[in-house]
Design a protein around this nucleic acid. Structure first.
Lengths: 123, 123
DNA sequence: CCGAATCCGCTGAGATACTG
DNA sequence: CAGTATCTCAGCGGATTCGG
């Protein structure tokens, strides 16, 4: 097949790709979800919530989300400094979908657990 | 901050992460979307639809989706061989999510286009 | 036609140290 | 507290070749 040089320019699947590139990162889903739960979160606090992220990746991901207008970054110029993150309006529009996705995940986790129980009973 | 050793074991954000790991690949969203549009797609056909994927990545991604029970792989043992892919029930449950996401993407693309028109008018 | 297998460059994730 | 800066290294993803 090799690579088809044509980019998915006007394909209807393209906006699917567009959206996934904006929320598909390793941490983006959890960040958006956490911001919806807590409304406002400070940088360090967010790091503690995600629990498996480095400052570098957290900064990088937050910058991307900010660039795409999904979150709002508010800096307080004081010592020690304080930076608060919150959902933008566009970002907030994604919450219903993430909620749906979370429920799907919960359901699937439950289903897998049952399957594992079955197999272990058979063993 | 470094890395917090604790994995997000029972955090409510964990199932968000779980779900994103299953559909967050570079091509997974588009594959699921295409399968919903066409119901049944053959391997080569899928490659032509995505238009920017190599056989290796396509195979790899399809295997992951199959392993997670999101798609069904049906092999016809004949010459030349034929393999058909379709959505599983669990995979189909994701379609509403992807549909909404696509609409969100369309809307956002439109919004960005308008913004660019404005700035070019100002120039 | 539908892949599997191999080689390989390069990015991007992670660890660590440092700064305003 | 909220980040940069730098380095290292695994693994993602691409090109190519081979097989049923």
């Amino acid at each position: 097949m090799a690579k088809m040089t044509r980019k998915c320019s006007d394909s209807p699947t393209c906006s699917v790709d567009y959206a996934f590139r904006r929320i598909g990162g390793k941490y983006k889903g959890r960040i958006l979800w956490s911001l919806n739960e807590h409304k406002i979160i400070r940088f360090g606090e967010l790091g503690r919530i995600l629990a498996d992220v480095t400052t570098k990746m957290l900064t990088q991901t937050l910058r991307e989300l900010e660039k795409d207008d999904l979150i709002i970054r508010k800096v307080y110029h004081q010592v020690p400094p304080m930076v608060e993150y919150s959902l933008s309006e566009t970002g907030f529009e994604l919450i219903p979908f993430i909620t749906y996705l979370k429920e799907w995940g919960d359901k699937k986790i439950e289903k897998e657990k049952n399957k594992n129980t079955e197999t272990s009973l058979l063993a």
